[in-house]
Amino acid sequence: MHPVTTVPRPRPDLAGWLLAAARRWHAAEDPEAAVRAVLDDVATLLPPDASVALTLLGTGRRPVAPQGDTGPAAGLDAVQVGRGQGPLLAALAGTPAGSGDLGRDLRWPLLAGAAAAAGVRAATCLPLDTGAEVIGALSVYATGAGPGADRATLVPVAGQVALALHTVRRTTNLVVALDSRDLIGQAKGVLMERYRITADTAFGILVRASQDTHRKVRDVAALVTETGETPRPVSAGGDGRAPGGP
């Protein structure tokens, strides 16, 4: 009998793959779509026994809910966020981290049980570093006895993911800001015409209404432009009239 030989899985053309993938990520219409595109694409690079997750940093640089493919990756990211321990936390702080045997790794004892329950053996967690800031982390977990994810492949991928998500997030925020500016301008115009007041006074009314009602200025402006109603309270008497107005 001839010995059985295992044909190694061919490595992808990383340069070509990454160029095409990065174009898709940058073209996403919003951050959520970009995250989904990243997860779908990165999953095609991984061995069959691996899964991928993204955990991004939100307000106050606190991790938001991890998102992942159909494997256990997002669940293990969530466990680490909840317990404050694991390679993910190191990656979110800017340091690549990982383990070839999470169940026996003494650095993160609180993670061992969860990893064993999920059948996960190895982990690779990389910071999503734009060069100016870390915006999150890319995590890959392996369940089989194989070599796991190729870290040399994942490092440039994580760098491009960071740049793409940062760009899409900034673009989305800019569009929202421009829309808000236009909406606030329209609301100021309504108040200026109604009360014969200056633009600064009209804006002051919107700001005070925002503070009094605990709503965003944009939401108050939307009410004014959509209904024609003056936000309340806008004066000490709470009568809905602009100070000094008729």
Rank of each mutant, 00 (worst) to 15 (best):
V4R: 12
V4C: 03
V7L: 15
R9C: 04
R9Y: 04
R9G: 02
P10T: 04
G16I: 05
W17C: 03
W17D: 02
A22N: 02
R23E: 08
R23N: 03
R24D: 11
W25Y: 02
A27F: 09
E29D: 15
V38I: 10
L39P: 00
L39T: 00
V42R: 01
T44C: 11
L45R: 02
P48R: 06
A53Q: 02
L54T: 02
L57V: 05
T59I: 11
R62I: 10
R62L: 13
P66D: 12
D77Y: 08
Q80D: 03
G84T: 06
A90Q: 14
A91R: 08
T95P: 02
P96K: 03
P96S: 09
S99Q: 10
D101W: 13
R104W: 13
R107L: 11
L111N: 01
G113E: 14
A118E: 14
A122Y: 03
T124D: 14
T124H: 14
L126G: 08
L128T: 04
L128W: 02
G131K: 11
A132T: 15
V134T: 15
S139T: 14
Y141K: 01
Y141S: 08
G146C: 06
P147I: 01
G148M: 07
G148F: 07
V155K: 05
P156Y: 00
Q160G: 00
R170T: 11
A177K: 13
S180W: 01
R181L: 10
M192W: 02
E193D: 12
R196V: 09
D200V: 15
T201P: 00
G204K: 07
I205W: 06
R208L: 11
H214T: 08
R215W: 00
K216Q: 13
V217A: 12
V217L: 14
L223G: 03
T225Y: 06
G228Q: 04
V234M: 08
S235E: 03
R241M: 11
P246D: 07
